[in-house]
Design a protein around this nucleic acid. Sequence first.
DNA 1: ATGTTCCACGAACAACGTTCGTTGTCAACG
DNA 2: CGTTGACAACGAACGTTGTTCGTGGAACAT
Lengths: 242, 242
Amino acid sequence: MFDMTEAIGLPRPPGAKPRRVRAERGLSREAIVATALRVIDDEGIDAVTMRRIGLELGTGGASLYAHIDGKDELLELVFDEVAGEIAPIEADPKHWQDQLKSYLRDWHRILLSHRDLARIGLGRVPTGPNSLVGMECMLSIMRAGKLDDAVIGYGADLLSAYVTNSAYEGSIWMSGKAATPEVGQAYHRELETYFASLPPERFPTLISLVPALMGDPEEDGEARFEFGLDVVVRGLVARSKK
Amino acid sequence: MFDMTEAIGLPRPPGAKPRRVRAERGLSREAIVATALRVIDDEGIDAVTMRRIGLELGTGGASLYAHIDGKDELLELVFDEVAGEIAPIEADPKHWQDQLKSYLRDWHRILLSHRDLARIGLGRVPTGPNSLVGMECMLSIMRAGKLDDAVIGYGADLLSAYVTNSAYEGSIWMSGKAATPEVGQAYHRELETYFASLPPERFPTLISLVPALMGDPEEDGEARFEFGLDVVVRGLVARSKK
DNA sequence: ATGTTCCACGAACAACGTTCGTTGTCAACG
DNA sequence: CGTTGACAACGAACGTTGTTCGTGGAACAT
């Protein structure tokens, strides 16, 4: 047989590794990551098991280790894959605040659309290529707003942590198990009545704030996220103008 | 779940089970929780195993289930136990912002002093007695600041999530394994050089902000937390005055 | 044709949370 | 005082988990 590069007509670059032409026998990094993401979308992260992913691909769990270091790396790859779903935008100094909010909204919505995927990103510094693109995009928008470098540096971390944490919290209400939305609302009501039943002489403020704390479970998630987004961005601007 | 009525000191409802008077033969809820907390302080949460805790108490893992529902409940109990370490303060309308910040600083510091304990509280609504006292305290301070109820409701969630998330992030740098501070700093430098080595034409903003993003690993944790605290509180005030 | 390399894969390992069945011991009752 | 019943203690075991090992076989390079 001949080399693929010859067939195309290009000379092989000096020092390039002889291209791996080996026929992929079914398994590949991409297929594994895609399968894991599908399982997450269907049943959540806890359903992601090496054996499960292997089985889904017609083999066993051990076969994955030829393509992937381990479960941690697999989950990070999935996370970065999803990070590629968000569309980068070009910074416009005139609307940088709206742009920033809109971008983080997108990011939050995409995370939520993949069940409890956000859990992977908790407390992690994202280093995957797609995550880096997202980070660059966010930073450029903030810089277009003429924020101090120090504010941008800490603020970007603060914002991305807020998005990830919010998405994770939001996902809990619908993925505690194979939980339908009803189960989440049931827990919501249970929690509300529990707070309201506390001894009033010991928890006067808490009890009087139960409605404000819990909110309407229907539209609460979005309103809550929007609130925090507004608060943090306001704070960043105020802090930068000081 | 544990018996809330007993923990708070309410009179026992009529028809409740007569309290267990049986002499404790060595094992007890308190001893188990205390042991788990000690193991966390020494080696982190991942070292907490049913067998390990049992072994530490001179028995096996199965013996714990007579006192505790399972591992989840145990960890929640430990978390609330630590929540009891923070000293409640009385709200003073004149210094409510300083009080709020100081209170959250305490909470953050205490969480960090117990390794990666903060991980337990991630995305969880704390319902333990001590956590509730802390919540009530925080809410009363915010109310002393005459913030809108809606702002208090969402804001309290935002702040407590920020504290927990910050403590968790901070704990990662020193508990990836049996990691000494040196290991954390080594990873810090590795990350810094990695960012700096990215293609400048694709990540110009990110590269120019590497110093601001990473900061001095020595004092960075505290400064970062303080920054976010200031930003969120500022934002809350601004939002409330609108 | 002959090595050589590397992927697939069943089996196995260690560790986990939890359940089960037995045993011993104390508190309550006649 | 003797009996009984409830329950803590505990070893063993079950079902999972992530990961490693050793074998087998297919495709490349020589």
